[in-house]
Simulated scan of single mutants.
Amino acid sequence: MSCGEPHETDCSEVLDHLYEFLDREMPDADCTKFEVHFEECSPCLEKYGLEQAVKKLVKRCCGSDDVPADLRSKVMGRIDLIRSGEPVPEQDVSVSPAEAQGLIKE
C-alpha cells in the first residue's frame, strides 16, 4: 500500500513494521520517523488507527485468558524463525484440542 505521495519514510516500510511500532519494540528514532510519517500520510494513519483499535479490543476481550505454555512455545518459535530470516514452514501453527479448549471459553 502506498498513498502515492513521496515521504522520507516509505509507506511500505511503515506498514511492514507497524506492529513493532504499536508494541514499542523499535528504537525511539524509528518511532519518531513513523510518527512524522503518520502526520503526513492519512492512509497510513488510518491503518495505524485501525490496528491500534483491534489491538485494544483483543486486549480487552482476551487479555485475562492464560495462553497454554505449549502454544506459546510454538508461536514464539515461529517468531524466532521469522526474525532470523530462516525459511518458515507453510503450515499453520497447530493447536491441539486441549490447547483450543483452553483458548475458547463460552
Rank of each mutant, 00 (worst) to 15 (best):
V67Y: 09
E51W: 09
D23S: 13
D30G: 07
L81E: 14
H17C: 06
I79Y: 10
L103T: 03
M1K: 06
G4S: 07
S42C: 03
E35K: 14
E106R: 13
I104K: 04
M26K: 02
C41L: 02
E106P: 11
S42A: 11
H17S: 10
V67P: 07
V58F: 01
S64V: 10
Y19M: 05
E99I: 06
K47G: 00
G63I: 04
D16M: 07
D92L: 10
A98L: 08
E25P: 04
G4D: 03
A100C: 08
L45P: 02
K56C: 03
V95N: 01
I79R: 14
S12V: 12
A29R: 14
S96F: 01
L15P: 01
E40D: 11
E90N: 13
P68R: 06
C62P: 00
G102V: 04
D23L: 14
V75G: 00
K74G: 07
E51H: 12
A29E: 15
V93D: 08
C44M: 05
S64M: 08
K55G: 05
V93M: 09
R83L: 13
D30W: 07
S94T: 15
K56F: 13
E106C: 08
K33R: 15
K74F: 05
D80M: 07
G85R: 08
C44E: 02
F34T: 04
G85M: 08
D23R: 13
E13F: 15
R83H: 13
Q101H: 15
C11I: 05
F38R: 12
E90Q: 12
E8G: 10
G102A: 08
D28L: 14
A69I: 08
C3A: 07
E5Q: 15
A53M: 12
L57P: 00
M26L: 09
V93S: 10
L22V: 02
Q52N: 12
V14I: 06
P97E: 04
G77M: 02
Y19F: 13
S73P: 00
P87K: 13
P89K: 09
I79P: 00
K33P: 01
E86D: 15
Q91W: 01
D23A: 14
K47L: 09
S64W: 02
C31A: 14
V75R: 04
D23H: 12
E86P: 01
F38M: 14
L22Q: 02
G85S: 06
E90F: 02
L57R: 12
P68E: 05
I104N: 03
K55C: 12
D30I: 10
D80V: 10
R60M: 11
F21W: 07
S96G: 04
D10T: 15
I82Q: 10
D65R: 15
D10A: 15
A53L: 14
V93I: 09
V75Y: 01
V93T: 07
E99N: 03
L103K: 02
H37T: 07
P97Y: 00
L71D: 04
S12M: 11
I79M: 09
C11G: 03
G85P: 05
K55S: 15
K74V: 03
F38K: 12
C31Y: 00
P87F: 02
E46I: 11
P27W: 01
L81F: 12
C3F: 06
L103G: 03
A29T: 13
E46P: 01
